[in-house]
Simulated assay, not measured.
Amino acid sequence: MSYDLHQRRAGVLLHPTSFPSGKLGDAARWLDFLEATGLSVWQVLPLGVPQDDLSPYQCLSAFAGNPALLDEMEMLDAASGDFRAYCREQHYWLEDYALFRIIKELQQDRAWFQWPEELKWRNHEALAIVSETHADALLELKWEQYQLHNRWQALKQEAHRRNIRLFGDMPIFVAHDSADVWANPKRFLLDEQGLPAWVTGVPPDYFSETGQRWGNPHYDWEYHKEENFDWWVARMRNHFEWFDLVRIDHFRGLQAVWMIDADAGPKADLGPIAIKGADAVDPDFIRTYSRLKAGQAYSPEELTDAANRLRTLKTFDSVVINTGDSLDENGQLPTTITVKDGKFRYFGFG
């Protein structure tokens, strides 16, 4: 259904994770509310699969939806004609996404540029072995996407019946550790190790006196031009399958994006090390074992080494270390270690 730009409308921004259940099972009641109040636009944040920091703007794929939004899922039917048709239609991203998720799990959630060389650079024989050995798991991941796609299309149809339009959000840049960058590194400005040569950011403005370092890899626009911008066309087409309106987040990234030398890093010391997600492991143990300390000079390499050091414990399902986009009141860089506890016995200090 086309969107009438000449019709004046009012709406609400509400991400599905803000529903009482955090799932799409509450969407019908939400549409009831919008219809009853005369609101006819429902805006959401990006619906992708977030990384461990749960930001919807740093996702594992520019195309995949987050299956955690499903309140229920039908049993896998690999023989379903509709499912097979969906896999064919979405093959341009679905196969790479499923492989990426499987390998990432096998590699203890390490980023793709830290994988063994044959997996990192997509050796055909190595990927064939993964595909054959984990065929059932690959099917499950594709089935999740099929189920979510169907659920959202039904929701979209119901919204249209009520004269409600869906307003989506698409980050202009993608996460470095994503299926998109792993599957097609030539589309991005990376070095021979697969690391960004340049990262994204924006100049100082009303919101930030020092500008912002976003840290995403930059696109190789010449390569995209050679491809006739096929990836961008596919990405926009995918979003308009889900939404009536799409916002590219955000305009600042289109109008005045910076190219920042990836090796430069913020010119600041690390601030106090915050710990998130540790329920069974003492936060002081995590800080000590990471060897990161407040006041030490910022170093991307040391942050990577700290994350890998914690992963070698085989205590956590995932480890992510993030720094803030701006300095705190003490002129230091806020630093957070986010972990997801695995199944293990408790240990720590004290």
Rank of each mutant, 00 (worst) to 15 (best):
I164T: 02
G168C: 05
W198H: 10
W182Q: 01
F173G: 01
A179D: 08
G201T: 01
T200D: 04
L166H: 05
S178K: 04
R161A: 14
V174C: 05
V202A: 15
R165D: 14
V174E: 00
Y206F: 14
G201L: 02
Q193T: 15
S178A: 08
V181A: 02
A179H: 06
M170V: 08
A154F: 10
R187Y: 14
K186I: 12
A154D: 13
K186A: 14
I164C: 04
H160A: 10
D180M: 03
L195D: 12
Q193G: 12
Y206R: 14
D191L: 04
V202N: 10
L189F: 07
A175C: 10
A175Q: 03
V199T: 07
L195W: 11
G201R: 00
R165I: 11
H176F: 04
R161F: 11
A183M: 07
P171Q: 05
H160M: 07
N184Q: 15
F173V: 07
K156P: 03
Q157Y: 11
D180I: 03
F188P: 00
L189E: 12
L166E: 03
H176A: 04
K186T: 14
A154K: 13
P204N: 08
D205W: 06
D191Q: 06
F173T: 07
A183R: 10
V174W: 01
V202Y: 06
A154T: 12
D205N: 06
D177L: 01
P203V: 10
N184R: 14
P185K: 07
L155W: 08
G194H: 07
A183N: 09
V199G: 01
A179S: 15
L155E: 02
A183I: 05
L195V: 09
D180T: 01
Y206P: 04
D169R: 06
P171H: 05
R161T: 14
I172T: 08
L155C: 06
P203Y: 06
A179Q: 09
L190K: 01
P204H: 09
A154S: 12
V174T: 07
Q193S: 15
D191I: 03
R162L: 12
A154H: 11
R162S: 10
P171G: 06
D191C: 05
E192N: 13
P185D: 09
K186Q: 15
E158S: 12
E158V: 11
L166C: 03
R161N: 13
Y206G: 12
L195M: 15
P185R: 10
W182Y: 03
E192G: 09
P204Y: 10
P196H: 01
V202K: 07
H176R: 07
L189I: 14
M170I: 09
T200E: 05
V174S: 00
Q157W: 10
V174A: 04
P203C: 08
H160Q: 08
G168A: 05
P203R: 10
V181E: 02
S178I: 04
D180C: 04
G201F: 01
A154W: 10
G168S: 07
F188Y: 12
L195R: 12
V202E: 11
P196W: 00
V181L: 04
L155K: 05
Q157L: 13
F167V: 06
V181S: 04
L190D: 01
D205R: 07
N163S: 14
L166K: 03
V202L: 14
F167I: 05
K186R: 15
A175Y: 02
Y206V: 12
W198G: 09
Q157G: 10
L190W: 00
Q157A: 15
N163T: 13
W182C: 01
A159P: 01
K156H: 15
